[in-house]
């Protein structure tokens, strides 16, 4: 499952949110997309998920164009949005079933898959609890589990550990590590330690453009810096006027 992004651009009147983004992501790769706020990360993810129509360019996901065939692309990917996205009055189990069935699973198939995800994400003891009664960390966990319900070939995680405590973040990292190599994951995060721990390759966006691309080691060698934070600060530095 490769993703081939070619000249992807999103323009809002005078403002260019994503500017001629060209990138190739390998099958099974864990790719981290970094950038300051408003760098264009979420806009990029929204275009790749078919939530926004690109102003220019295209991306080919598993041979299907996001511009010409967005419905086919939507069938093979899933997303855990930046904010927790769960149905508050449904139980954990019902939330998972809902997503499975919306993607076309038969009820029995969805029930089986929901059990698999609850076991994987440690949600089985809370399966009958309404989502609104869960702590922030558990809601995040459920949100990611819902994204995994459909066995996506591509998974988009938009700041999945935002607001989680240390233990909940660590637990989620361990789960994500288990998924490495099995599905293509695109992660955006402001936590650089998370990126260092999980990502195979890192892209740094600034003002809608890709300013750096490579493995952590490549970026450190290329810039002569000692940490990812130093690399990030250099690549996103604003010119002093």
């Amino acid at each position: 499952m490769t993703i081939n992004i070619k000249g992807l651009t999103k323009r809002y009147k005078e403002r260019v949110a994503v500017d001629q983004l060209t990138l190739h992501i390998q099958q099974g790769e864990f790719f981290a997309l970094l950038g300051q706020n408003a760098a264009g990360k979420t806009t990029t993810i929204k275009m790749l998920c078919g939530l926004l129509t690109p102003s220019e360019g295209d991306a080919i996901v598993d041979g299907k164009s996001i511009v010409e065939n967005p419905k086919a692309v939507k069938q093979i990917l899933n997303i855990s949005p930046q904010e927790t996205a769960v149905a508050p009055n449904l139980t954990v189990y019902e939330n998972l079933l809902l997503i499975g069935q919306i993607y076309g699973y038969k009820k029995v198939q969805a029930q089986h898959q929901a059990q698999v995800q609850m076991d994987l994400f440690g949600l089985t003891p809370r399966q009958r609890d309404k989502a609104k009664t869960l702590s922030g960390g558990y809601q995040r966990r459920l949100s990611v589990a819902m994204a995994m319900m459909t066995n996506p070939k591509v998974l988009f995680l938009d700041e999945p550990t935002l607001g989680m405590d240390v233990r909940a973040r660590n637990d989620l990292w361990n789960i994500l590590k288990q998924l490495k190599g099995k599905i293509t994951i695109i992660l955006t995060s402001h936590y650089l330690d998370e990126v260092e721990a999980l990502a195979d390759r890192i892209g740094i966006m600034h003002h809608g453009q890709l300013h750096a691309l490579g493995t952590l080691q490549q970026l450190l060698i290329e810039t002569g810096k000692r940490t990812l934070e130093e690399v990030f600060l250099e690549k996103t530095e604003e010119a002093l006027s």
């Binding site: 078919g50 939530l51 419905k71 997303i79 904010e83 927790t84 996205a85 919306i102 993607y103």
Partner: peptide, 13 residues
């Protein structure tokens, strides 16, 4: 307001 609709929009519905 809760992002749930964004998740649903990303589905084939």
């Amino acid at each position: 307001s809760s992002s749930l609709l964004m998740r649903i929009f990303a589905s084939p519905m």
